[in-house]
């Protein structure tokens, strides 16, 4: 078993955990954890799965992942702001079904 295989398995487990967390988590903060964990799983997979070039790791996926990390951070930061505001307005930091909304 090579390291790449190992990290792929780790990525798979992380992905599963992320999915599980996303489903069961009540608090939005936890859902954000879950999504970030899923994201990291995918980043690991992207780097691990695109094998080395001439012994050196392929730089391109790493660059892509770097972009992905920035995007994940941006989205997380926004989500946190949104969560705080939501909590301020409704006193809840979870998603509940009220799609019709108030008018």
């Amino acid at each position: 078993m090579s390291s790449a295989v190992l990290f792929v398995i780790v990525a798979a487990l992380l992905f599963g955990i992320g999915v599980y967390g996303l489903i069961i988590a009540g608090h939005l903060l936890r859902k954000l954890f879950a999504i970030n964990i899923m994201g990291n799983a995918i980043f690991i997979l992207m780097v691990a799965a695109s094998g080395p070039l001439d012994g050196k790791p392929d730089a391109l996926p790493q660059a892509l992942v770097l972009t992905g990390i920035v995007i994940a951070v941006s989205a997380t930061a926004f989500a946190l702001a949104l969560m705080v505001r939501l909590y301020q307005l409704t006193g809840q930091a979870s998603l509940h079904n009220n799609e019709g909304g108030d008018d």
Binding site: A79, L82, L86, L89, L95, N98, E99, G100, G101, D102
Partner: peptide, 9 residues
């Protein structure tokens, strides 16, 4: 508004 933010989330 709360409903909108909830939806956005």
């Amino acid at each position: 508004r709360p409903a909108a933010l909830q939806a956005a989330m």
